[in-house]
Design a protein around this nucleic acid. Structure first.
Length: 596
RNA sequence: UGCCCGAUGGUGUAAUGGUAGCACAAACGACUCUGACUCGUUUUGUCUAGGUUCGAGUCCUAGUCGGGCAGCCA
């Protein structure tokens, strides 16, 4: 990896995009004491690569400006949210930013609630971030702001900007009109402030059943922007909340809670995806109609990530998991962050990828090849090389005695400045990859063929003397002679042959389960298909029992390995155990030969 | 259909009125004890039509195409 393509390198140029340009202008104009962004997932599912883009953007801006990025759970809909997701999201975020932007992670002091105070003579609430290193610091929760949000709602009512509406859900929809047809005013729109106050207080007190009344902003039922047609601010839901329990039976809606949560936390740049563009006038309207003394946050939108051969829709991801097309949310074939981690994708590769795709408002489709390139680029630099034979075929080196062990030096990583080595045992019987032998070789075949020569990597050149077959005509073993003069230190070490292949000793090697993952879908845009499940790649997972060199006995999930000439692998964090090795293929090596 | 947003090689992006550049992909070549890596060469682009300007990918108008919005979801 070159230094200047690596955003985690201190000397690297910072990325530029239209949002960072805006932030830079705000910094230049000293509009804010500190740049504060936020990553605000709803805890209703696992994070995926699309979220990773957003995390890298928000935390990236924070770290580039000596600012902060709050992790906030946008948990205003208790019907959909669970603690399992709260926990997985924290794990994924911390993993993704570790060693890169963890010093910018905005958490609050344990149990902290927004503090009431006075700013510029006006009453104010502020949800401060805890100083770095605060013991027990925890993420922000929108649900921690329910009391303040309730106060703000009372204020809107008093100012005549909000009213309690008794329309049923169906009636509300009907009154709203449609994009090309203006809506009509609710018959409850002109209730007195006193009545609204009374009704809203009683909503909060639990006097009314679900759906009976709502609190609405009084804006304009004829607005061409549907989100300005008296949007709902609060609904009644008699349901326990994962974070606030039974404390509330009215819950704020996204548009109301989000802008105010941003404000409470002192967020300066609220960055979301383009589908919220039409919500921005409402975001601004709410903040403008409360007399908030501190600088108001502003919303900016960018296009979400689309990757070919992948699916990001939460609804569809759930189907894949629940209908057992994959094995759980961390299945390595899934575009979830948990899946990527288990597959062996380094966090830094994800960050680099986010850097390379850029940030725009254009709704494009990024080629999966760009993602794979970033992976290989990162993995190439950090992976230790190992020899592993995925589909073994036995070779007998007839001029090596049984029991004889010749030790070879193998380079751990040629990309290192001062590469280290490890010993490898060459014995009479070895395994090579079955696809590295062809009885009838295609043109330009560099590998082993009857009567042909090939080099066993780190060992010596061998010549195929005899092909042994069983009664069915299947090749069972190859009998070869080893030219020991071509070993390291030997007189003919520099003798060239066209092909060099990987191998392992038959007696000094280990069996390992190896999971060969491939793309989950067979079409570039599975999300565009009505029945996307018809396009699931039946070969997205192939499991083989491989022969791997014995040094892999102590392999850990923290390590990345390149099985030479094959691909990048890591130990499976769940299923691997001492004595029962399981490897996941992160990504194959580029193979320009196979394409021809 | 009303409103909002967008459009630069095959793909993702840069150029902030002044030489259309980068990365990926593709092709060819060099190197190679990984058909990897690395290095070199090459192919391909400003949606259309008008306008403003000495000069337009950039500004204006219209069109075309694409995306988004009508949950008491976020």
């Amino acid at each position: 990896m070159s230094a200047d393509s690596n955003p985690s390198n201190a000397a690297a140029p910072v990325p530029t995009d239209f949002i960072r340009d805006i932030v830079a202008q705000d910094v230049a104009a000293a509009r804010f004491p500190k740049i504060v962004t936020r990553f605000p997932p709803e805890p209703n599912g696992y994070l995926h690569l699309g979220h990773a883009k957003s995390i890298c953007l928000n935390f990236g801006i924070a770290r580039e400006n000596n600012g902060r990025c709050n992790l906030r759970f946008d948990d205003t809909n208790p019907a959909k949210e669970e603690v399992e997701y709260v926990e997985s999201i924290q794990t994924d975020v911390r993993w993704l930013i570790d060693g890169w932007a963890d010093h910018c992670l905005g958490f609050k002091a344990p149990g902290a609630a927004p503090a009431a105070g006075t700013v510029n003579g006006l009453p104010d609430f502020h949800a401060a971030a805890a100083p770095a290193g605060t013991a027990g610091a925890e993420p922000f929760y929108a649900s921690d702001y329910f009391p303040q949000l309730y106060e703000y709602a009372l204020t809107l009512i008093r100012k005549g900007h909000a009213y309690v509406c008794d329309l049923s859900p169906a009636e509300t929809e009907e009154y709203r009109g449609s994009p090309d047809k203006p809506g009509r005013n609710s018959p409850f729109r002109d209730r007195s402030v006193a009545e609204n106050l009374d009704l809203f207080t009683r909503m909060r007190a639990g006097e009314f059943p679900d759906g009976k009344r709502t609190l609405r902003a009084k804006i304009d039922m004829t607005s061409p922007n549907i989100w300005l047609r008296d949007p709902l601010l609060y609904r009644i839901r008699h349901i326990a909340h994962h974070h606030t329990g039974d404390a509330w039976c009215i819950y704020p809606l996204y548009d109301y809670a989000h802008c105010l949560s941003d404000y409470l936390e002192g967020v300066t740049h609220s960055i979301c995806t383009v589908e919220f563009e039409v919500h921005r006038p409402l975001y601004d309207w709410i903040l403008e109609h409360l007399d908030l003394p501190r600088p108001r946050p502003h919303q900016y939108e960018f296009a979400k990530l689309n990757l070919s051969y992948m699916i990001f829709s939460k609804r569809r991801l759930i189907q894949l998991v629940q209908e057992n097309f994959v094995q759980g949310w961390d299945d390595p074939r899934l575009p979830t962050i948990a899946g990527a981690r288990r597959r062996g994708i380094p966090a830094r590769a994800l960050r680099n990828f986010a850097y390379h795709v850029g940030v725009t408002k254009f709704d494009g489709l990024t080629d999966i090849a760009a993602f794979e390139h970033t992976l290989r680029e990162e993995l190439n630099g950090i992976s230790h090389r190992r020899l592993a034979v995925l589909r073994p075929i036995k070779i007998v080196l007839t001029n090596i005695a049984e029991g004889e062990v010749l030790t070879c030096d193998a380079t751990n990583n040629p990309q290192d400045e001062n590469p280290t080595t490890r010993p490898l045992a060459l014995t009479r019987e070895v395994f090579i990859e079955s696809e590295d032998f062809a009885e009838v070789p295609p043109p330009k075949y560099f590998r082993l063929k009857p009567g042909g020569e090939v080099r066993l990597k780190y060992a010596c050149i061998i010549k195929c003397d005899e092909v042994v077959k069983d009664a069915a005509g299947q090749v069972t073993e190859l009998r070869c002679t080893a030219d020991l003069t071509t070993r390291a230190g030997g007189p003919n070490v520099d003798r060239k042959v066209k092909g060099t292949i990987h191998w392992v000793s038959a007696t000094q090697s280990l069996d390992a389960e190896v999971r060969l993952y491939d793309r989950l879908f067979t079409v570039a845009e599975p999300g565009a298909e009505e029945d996307f499940k018809k396009f699931i790649n039946p070969h997205s997972l192939e499991v083989v029992t491989a022969k791997v060199e014995s040094s892999l006995a102590t392999a850990t999930p923290a390590e990345r390995y390149q099985f030479e000439r094959t691909g990048y692998f890591t130990v499976d964090s769940k299923d691997s155990a001492p004595g029962k090795l399981v490897f996941n293929r992160t990504i194959s090596l580029k193979d320009t030969w196979a394409k021809k």
